[in-house]
Each structure stands twice: as structure tokens, then as C-alpha cells.
């Protein structure tokens, strides 16, 4: 039972991590919380649903298209909205408000186009379980967990070992200095939105496979946000650790206490952490976290 819960918790935490790392990356570059980020996950899941269920392409292709869709929508938000808000020299609060606006718009559009109906992939999901050491582990959970782990390792590699990552980290430290040294700042930012959007797309599809796809499913973005604050906003490893912690906590609360108290505990963790260590587990500086 314990092992089962743990694996489920880690696999849910992994889905949060796919979103939380995106929050953290964008926050580290632009100092604002991209509230539309959860909606990228929702839209990616819908793109995959459209291709898988309505067009009828094989599930894997639909999933890839869904990920691309989420990446493009994220990229589009940066190109069309955030970049222009930045170029006016407006305070970062405006970016956050812009993001909130887009979040609502995306939800409403999804509601209009797809209705509020809960949809599931027609693709036959692996609902079976396998028995390991007396515990019954969901195959879907295991697939989700492995896929997430591979993606996150790749993400850490990108950030720490490549020139793209070096530029991103330089911009996060000091965008002005990066710019005068010849870093193509706007291009790096746009690439990060593509990357964060595609991770959100994966998260949305995994979440949609496990539960359902519906217009307000982007609200898991809020959980991912909590996880990235717990881990230390702006820190990618922090976002991953915070997500796993939150996923496991939620699963254990649901399993051993009550599933209706799940969110109570998640947000209590957030509040306690903000009181005790406001910079988060991996946080480096405490600043405006609007």
C-alpha cells in the first residue's frame, strides 16, 4: 500500500514538475509568474484529443501534435503579448495581469469550442497493474514516471551543459549585461517559452490520460505554482523537488487522511513554508513573487 501510494505520488509529482519547471524558468528570466502556464497544458491536451479522437490519428502522433500545439501557444503568448508589454517598460505586475487575462480567455475559448464535457482519450490506456514486492503499481503511473524522469534529466542537461542553457542562466542573472555582451536575449526567451510550453503539453496529456480532459484542468497549474514556490521560485531543481514533495504529500493525505483535505494540506504546506523559509527549499533570494 505504502509503495503503491509513493509511486502514484511521485508520478503525480512528476506531472507537477513538468509544469513547475516551466513556471520557474520563465520566472527566472522575466520575474513574473506566468499564470497562463496551466492553460498551455489544457490546450495541449485538447489538441491531442482532437487529433486522437476526432481526426483519428494514432495516439502517439496525436500526443506529439498536442505537445507541439502547447509549445506554439506558449510561444505565441510571448511573441504577441508578453514581449510587447515588456517593450513598453511596464512593471512586471502587468505581465502577470496579462497572463491572468489570457488564462481566463483560454479557459473560456476551450469551454466554447469543446463544451465543459469531460473527455477521455479513445486510445486504449494501459489500465492494468503489475505486482512488485506485493504492491500493485499502475502501468500508466510507471510510464508517466519514467517519461517524466527522462524529460527532466534532459531539461537539466539543456540548462546546465549547453550553450542555450548558459545563455538562459546568464539572462536570469542579468539580462542587460547579457544583451550588451551579444546574447540574443529575445530569442532565448522565446525558446524558453517553446520549451516550457512543450513540457506543459506533456503534463497536460499525461494528466488527461490519468484523469480526463476538461476546460478547467489548467488549474493544476496552480498546484505546480505552489510546488515551484515550495522549491524556491526561479530554481529548476527546486521546482522538481517541490513538485515531488507536493505530489507525494497529496497522495498520502488522500490515501491515509481524506481526499477532501488534499488541497488543505497542500496550501497549508505553502503557508508554513512561506512563514518559515520564504525563499523556498532551493531559493536564493526573496523578492517580489507576484
Amino acid at each position: 500500500m505504502f509503495l503503491q501510494q509513493l509511486i502514484t505520488g511521485i508520478s503525480i509529482g512528476g506531472i507537477y514538475a513538468l509544469l513547475a519547471t516551466g513556471y520557474s524558468l520563465i520566472y527566472s528570466l522575466l520575474d513574473f509568474s506566468n499564470w497562463a502556464h496551466g492553460e498551455f497544458a489544457m490546450l495541449g491536451a485538447y489538441v491531442a484529443i482532437v487529433f486522437a479522437n476526432m481526426v483519428g490519428v494514432p495516439f502517439l502522433i496525436a500526443a506529439v501534435l498536442g505537445v507541439c500545439g502547447a509549445a506554439l501557444i506558449s510561444f505565441f503568448c510571448e511573441k504577441v503579448v508578453y514581449r510587447h508589454i515588456r517593450s513598453t517598460g511596464a512593471p512586471n505586475m502587468f505581465l502577470m495581469i496579462g497572463a491572468m487575462g489570457m488564462s481566463t480567455i483560454f479557459q473560456q475559448v476551450a469551454n466554447l469550442v469543446f463544451t465543459g464535457q469531460y473527455r477521455s482519450f479513445k486510445f486504449k490506456l494501459p489500465v492494468n497493474t503489475i505486482e512488485i514486492a506485493g504492491a500493485y503499481l499502475g502501468v500508466l503511473d510507471l510510464i508517466s514516471l519514467v517519461l517524466t524522469a527522462v524529460i527532466l534529466v534532459f531539461l537539466m542537461y539543456l540548462i546546465n551543459k549547453t550553450k542555450f542553457g548558459l545563455n538562459v542562466r546568464a539572462i536570469a542573472c542579468n539580462a542587460y549585461a547579457a544583451r550588451v555582451l551579444g546574447v540574443r536575449v529575445d530569442r532565448s526567451i522565446a525558446s524558453v517559452f517553446l520549451l516550457a510550453g512543450s513540457l506543459a503539453g506533456v503534463a497536460g496529456i499525461l494528466y488527461g490520460m490519468k484523469y480526463n480532459v476538461f476546460p478547467t484542468m489548467g488549474n493544476i497549474g496552480l498546484k505546480a505554482f505552489v510546488a515551484s514556490v515550495v522549491g524556491g521560485l526561479g530554481s529548476v531543481p527546486g521546482a522538481i523537488v517541490g513538485s515531488l514533495l507536493l505530489g507525494v504529500l497529496e497522495t498520502f493525505v488522500s490515501g491515509y487522511v481524506s481526499s477532501s483535505l488534499r488541497d488543505f494540506f497542500s496550501f497549508a504546506l505553502l503557508i508554513v513554508l512561506l512563514l518559515v523559509k520564504p525563499s523556498g527549499l532551493f531559493g536564493v533570494d526573496v523578492q517580489d513573487k507576484a
Partner: peptide, 9 residues
Amino acid sequence: EARQIFAKL
């Protein structure tokens, strides 16, 4: 001005 090195690099 003011050096502006990348502190976390």
C-alpha cells in the same frame, strides 16, 4: 557600468 557580472555563473 558597475561590472554587472553574472553572479550565479
